[in-house]
Amino acid sequence: MKKSLTLALTSAVILFSTFSHAAKTEKAVLAGGCFWCMESDFEKLEGVTDVISGFTGGGKLINPTYNGNHKGHYEAVEITYDPAIVSYQGILDHYWVNIDPFDAKGQFCDKGPSYLSAIFVQNDEQRKLAEKTKAAVVAEFPNQTVVTPILNASTFYPIKGRESFHQDYYKNNPIRYNTYRWRCGRDSRLEEIWGERATH
């Protein structure tokens, strides 16, 4: 009886610890052009546990698709992270040095509304931190215009179904991905803006 009780208590503690850890994860939604690249850049960041490619920001248009209608939506990523390892501030700091905040037409070689950069905030605390980091970028580049907006979060639509190959594209198609990224000039432009802080 005592052994069974001890086993039950141990199992309960493990279950609680697992649930407690899972409950501590938080999410951030960011747009920075090609979601393949954003997924790659953020999955390398310590504390990030998952990155999903999808669309958001398109108002009333539901279930947008890559090859179909995604008018008004941004290509974006939903980042799940452990705030005990990386804070939302850390997520934003990593974000800025992985985008071109001055491009009002898109990002790098990809142009058009769906490739624009944006930070989607879910609450007042996220907005406060987003505005703080944006102000720091503005101050650092006084002769340029930072066009990346801070927007209220809306429904995030993961890429799925027949288009699910976009998830983890950089892992599953490394040669094609690396060729695309190089031809797009993403890393060279990031280094031009951010110098050694640029990550890739």
Rank of each mutant, 00 (worst) to 15 (best):
L92N: 00
D100M: 00
V77M: 01
Y115K: 07
A104D: 10
V137L: 03
W96L: 05
D100V: 02
V138M: 01
I150A: 09
F120D: 09
R127G: 01
D110W: 07
E75P: 00
T133V: 12
T145K: 13
N143E: 14
K111C: 05
A135F: 06
I85Y: 10
H94P: 01
D100N: 14
F102C: 14
Q122D: 12
N98D: 10
S114E: 10
H94A: 13
F156L: 12
S87G: 09
A135K: 14
N123H: 03
L129W: 07
D103G: 09
E78G: 02
A135P: 04
D110L: 03
I99R: 06
T133N: 13
P149T: 09
G90P: 11
P101G: 07
E78D: 01
F120V: 11
T80N: 00
S117F: 12
K132A: 12
P158E: 10
N98M: 06
F156G: 04
K132I: 00
Q107K: 14
T145V: 15
S87V: 10
N123K: 03
I79E: 07
S87C: 11
N98S: 15
Q122C: 06
V137W: 00
Q122M: 09
H94F: 00
V138N: 03
D124R: 04
N98V: 04
K132R: 06
F156C: 10
Q107H: 14
G112H: 08
Q107M: 15
E131V: 07
N152H: 13
P101Y: 15
E78H: 04
A139F: 05
Y81V: 08
Q144P: 03
N152W: 07
P113T: 08
V147A: 13
E131C: 00
V97N: 08
E125Q: 10
D100F: 00
V147K: 06
Y115H: 14
A153D: 01
V146E: 12
D100E: 03
T145D: 07
Y115C: 06
Y95V: 02
L151F: 00
L129V: 08
V77D: 02
V137P: 05
V121L: 08
V146K: 10
Y95K: 10
Y157D: 01
T148Y: 09
E125L: 09
